[in-house]
Amino acid sequence: MQKIKIVSLFCLFGWFVSFSSNAQNVEELVSKYTSENGQKYMQPFADAFSANLNSGLFHNAGINKLGFQIYLGIETQLAVIPSSQKFMTATTEGDYFPSTRVENVPTVFGPSEGKRIEDPNTGLVYVFPGGLDINYVPMITPQLTVGSVYGTDLTIRFAGTKKIEDVGDISLFGWGLRHSIDQYLPLPFSSAIGFYNQRFKFGDYLDASSSIISLQGSFSIQVITLYGGLGYEMGSMKISYEYENLENGQTEEIRFDLTPGNTIRLTTGFGFNLGPVNLHAEYNLAKQSTISAGLGIGFGYK
């Protein structure tokens, strides 16, 4: 059986650093999951990943009508995995064991020990794979926002790595456009509407895209900015891997097309503006909630 190197990904210029740790064999972790159970098993990952991508995209709704504005910073996101995302209802697969519907089966974030079902009459045992016992999914992304042209600014997220053994290329590209609303309406606070789109690729294994439309508002008092927003999220995640049957030597592609479950998102946050330095933190309330914090340098933003 081919070994897979675990490639740890984190912060490279504020995003992913890749490096290999010990070669580990986790290929069989979800070997039983080739159908509906697999979708359910991976769904929480899609939810958390997408929720992180859509966090920390803005920390101020103030956009000048014209003039140079720039912000360059690092955004950190943390999806806190609720217990409801750690378990699923699954049905035994294959011909050997009688078809049985089972509650509290681990998802990818669930407990590492598999769920066993034993037939008391025959002693046969069916095991659903365990998860990775994960409580948080963090992410770090670099972010650049530049404006303004007629109250519009552009946000870019970009990161990537060269080909990694056993994985391939890893890349993230995201863009977003915001347009000021308060330039048209006499509001007591800054407001904008924005659209962001991001795509993350992890070799041939994962292709995720995420979009969010958000209505943003902010209010600044001296060095403090309070901000918030209401967003609508959309996304998709395609996961694929190879399944090889050693009995017949044939390899087939197993593919999951997942739709992240997040839709409505409520953001509330605050920031400190210390000269050009901005430090901010926010909470995003959604089906998969996240915490986000960022640090950067900006010029021209209110």
């Binding site: 069989e28 972790l29 070997s31 990775l132 056993d166 070799g203 994962l206 891997y241 190879e242």
Partner: peptide
């Protein structure tokens, strides 16, 4: 059976 599965590792 064997599987080349890496995506779970991503999480």
């Amino acid at each position: 059976k064997k599987i080349n599965f890496i995506i779970v590792i991503t999480a």
